[in-house]
Write a protein that binds this DNA or RNA. Sequence first.
DNA 1: CCTCCTTGCTGACTCCTGTTCAATAACAGT
DNA 2: ACTGTTATTGAACAGGAGTCAGCAAGGAGG
Lengths: 251, 251
Amino acid sequence: MLVRGMRTLEKHGGATATRRRAAAKGPPPPPRRAARSAEAEAGRARVRLDVDERRAQLVELGLAEFGTRTYEEVSIDLIAQAAGISKGLLYHYFPTKRAYYVACVREAAARLVARLELPTDVPPLERLQVGLDRYLEYVRAHGGAFATLMRSGAFADRELAAVIDETRATLLGRLTSGMADIFPAPGTLSSPLLQIALQGWVGLAEAMSIAWVEACVAAEDARSTRPAPRADEVRDLLAQTLVAIVGSAVR
Amino acid sequence: MLVRGMRTLEKHGGATATRRRAAAKGPPPPPRRAARSAEAEAGRARVRLDVDERRAQLVELGLAEFGTRTYEEVSIDLIAQAAGISKGLLYHYFPTKRAYYVACVREAAARLVARLELPTDVPPLERLQVGLDRYLEYVRAHGGAFATLMRSGAFADRELAAVIDETRATLLGRLTSGMADIFPAPGTLSSPLLQIALQGWVGLAEAMSIAWVEACVAAEDARSTRPAPRADEVRDLLAQTLVAIVGSAVR
DNA sequence: CCTCCTTGCTGACTCCTGTTCAATAACAGT
DNA sequence: ACTGTTATTGAACAGGAGTCAGCAAGGAGG
């Protein structure tokens, strides 16, 4: 509690650490500063949460932080401080900073996927339009956070790339489901070229939506610039391009 | 002379540092060990190069390293060791690791741009095709390095983003120069929507080319997979999509 | 109410890597 | 050979990721 300090001089940890340091440095270690009891005077008592709660809280916080700053700009200490916990606790939930980041990206992706539930009883082209509308709406609402999350630390490790690829595949699958009827030619739908074409279109969609959001922001800031395109213009452009590219690829 | 000036200030800098250290640690700073001349017994003598030579060497090395590993995987020590110099020297040429990275990316971009010099006396569509062919050839040849360089640490800072944006704009300008003749409607060519469309197409081109290279690699590894598309198929797909997207955007 | 006892939680430590700086040595001009 | 310039170095510093021994909140069983 209050006097919980002392920490009994860290009987073990201290001794071990001292020994190791001595071995590394040679000269006798500097006098150890006496451990003081903080925690009490810090004002905030130790709060014990349920595992899932804490995890959710941390991911939520990470969503906000990583959406604003870059991966490397966000330090573990910062997160811990913002969450009101110790650094060590974070490692109780996530083995590494990257794992924490991946968890956050995964959550963001899950939310995006959840928001893009589409009706299955409408014709493919209409579904595509509705899906694109929702996608653009999402990107517009989450603006920079979306771009930051998707691009900032991306592609550094396999796991992260897998999450992103999977998300893309899921969304693409939803948007294009049923479109096989439109383009006959049975075998061609899974041809290597079409695969590449579709991956390319996903890149197009992301680049275009990001450019659109930037144009929107720029248009708001300065009156001088011409107004940004409307969402439905962008949506139509995306839809038409998808049709065109698939048409070209299966030809 | 600038350097000289700083040199003069070193008296101050040193004092400041010492003061800071004392303030931080409390106890008087440990006696600085007398600098000895080891170096000789290290086997390799100190080599003194011309500024530009060394810079070029370091950038060349960085191209290789950053093309293989990720930004964070490449440590300054690694670079220094590979170059056979001390860590400190790197900071004589580049103020920071990121600056070094940016210099490398800038060089890579410059080479790409240089390779994409296009003849000006051919019709626009043909020029587009030739340009795309060269682009794909480059991406194919430099495979992963291209993707790694362009994506790994990207977008972390303004400067890097600027380099990449500028490169994209340059290439796009070359590929599309003269195409104004094809699509009449004078004012529309710089409409906001078209800008977005073109940025989107660049994203398409990058995503598609990366997917294509991956398909090529995969096809080489396993015989089971279907063969990767030919370069000219991808090129035509890209060209047709560009025409289609511009057509949609100016409509 | 007390006592385990599980486990969420902490703080001090280590290690590693980017960055700084005073000192050193190679080269150019004299 | 002497000297000034500056490329080059080694050691120290800073600060952030990751580790670990021990502490305590809240329930289970007496």
